[in-house]
Amino acid sequence: MINIKDNQGDIWEVFVQSKSGLPHKHAGSVHATDKEMALQNARDLYTRRNEGTCIWVVPLKEIVSSMPSESESFFDPSDDKIYRHPTHYIMPEGAKHI
């Protein structure tokens, strides 16, 4: 016998690709008890107006997020690496296609 506490199922985060060629974009979440239900619920909720060509659903508990408290050590070190951007380089005047 499996004991079940009545609930609305797990939260699944939904990512929708609006057109092939474009990246999947976070749309929101749905509740579902299994993969197929998550996919169907996401389809019914987030693509009612022709918004999608592909959907990903991911259980919320499987998503790993960085924390805002770590954001300085995570993201600030890239602040001074301006040489990673093309605008850092000085091109000879008149040079084309570069």
Binding site: Q8, G9, V30, H31, A32, Q40, N41, D44, L45, R48
Partner: peptide
């Protein structure tokens, strides 16, 4: 039985 189903069934 769950809000998601209201949407599915009206669809």
């Amino acid at each position: 039985p769950i809000l998601e189903e209201d949407i599915a069934m009206t669809n």
